[in-house]
Design a protein around this nucleic acid. Structure first.
Lengths: 174, 174
DNA sequence: GGCAGTAAGTCAGCATTGTTGACATATTTC
DNA sequence: GAAATATGTCAACAATGCTGACTTACTGCC
């Protein structure tokens, strides 16, 4: 926090407040609407929805992911997860393997076609992000990355950053 | 686009690609999940959901909004909108007035309690944004605003920016 | 004045994706 | 062997999208 006490000492701001970032609240809505909307179009041609996308994405990025870890990432119930996971497995996009150390665990991995779909979806989203970063100018990427990380709940932030880094280690996927 | 042709001329990048921004794809997911999740908690104590929030928010920000404009913002069908709008009207959070020039139009405005709820929800989201901006350092706000605007579909961007500006004109709401 | 077009409301039914609760199975750990 | 753990499954329900069809009220225009 950068010197919050200054605010009440500043005569101009003493009786007023910092304007609430309504522009950002609204831009987050519109940006997210269009960001996921474009992927939805691709997904619907496969008979899948947004929930399938999330599962496929994280399995592609974190091969060997378990059900428990996925539930923790998505914050949904296992019944909801199982419904979409079943579609993906039956469609030949995801495979399950028994864990090595613990055979109760199901390690999830993408098949060739699952990987292809995940990458296709990531490409349309990456293109949109790349254009937005490009238009926004220098240093934007670092600022945006920090901002988004700061938007994640404090208790979960370290875990999220670790997951994102884990995904990166698996390579740029290109 | 900053000199995309350079990429194929750069010997280091000639056979490879720019790494896809997987970190940003994932951070957008986690940031949005927690951003709306916190508001959902408040909403559920009123028996409302995310869809009610969106309607209430934009009506509070753009008093006198018509059904047609709201449908264009939310990109849902009038049947979906009507379901949640009816809840908000019956709950005494939104009022409808006949249009002045065109009496077919319903001008939507928040009641006192509707305004209070809208502001309460905006406050928790503003607080999260303010903290994230603060942690991310100087110049972040401009960069993030530009980035988010760039994420909006090109065809809709001018309209979105106009709406956001229109909302701002109504005052800082504090 | 009457008629076409427009803004909005409504009914019915359905899909996706979230929820609870209860219970089953396989495996590990103690 | 018993308890705990990881996962799967059945059933029912809620929120929020959708399509299609039809109504009502009002405006604009010939």
């Amino acid at each position: 926090m950068s010197a919050p006490a200054l605010q009440s000492l500043d005569p101009v701001r003493a009786t007023t407040h910092v304007a609430a970032p309504y522009d950002l609240i609204e831009l987050i809505f519109f940006a997210y609407r269009d960001f996921v909307g474009e992927a939805d179009l691709v997904l619907s041609s496969y008979g899948f929805g947004r929930a399938h996308h999330r599962v496929l994405h994280f399995v592609d990025r974190l091969p060997g992911l378990t059900i428990a870890e996925l539930l923790d990432i998505l914050r949904i119930t296992k019944q909801s997860l199982n419904r979409v996971l079943r579609d993906l497995v039956e469609g030949g996009f995801i495979e399950q393997r028994a864990g090595v150390a613990d055979r109760r665990r199901r390690l999830l991995v993408t098949t060739r076609s699952g990987e292809a779909l995940a990458r296709e979806l990531a490409r349309v989203q990456s293109d949109r992000i790349a254009k937005a970063l490009d238009q926004a100018g220098e240093d934007t990427r670092v600022a945006v990355t920090r901002f988004l990380a700061g938007m994640v709940g404090e208790g979960d932030r370290a875990h999220v950053l670790e997951l994102v880094a884990r995904g990166r280690i698996n390579g740029p996927h290109l």
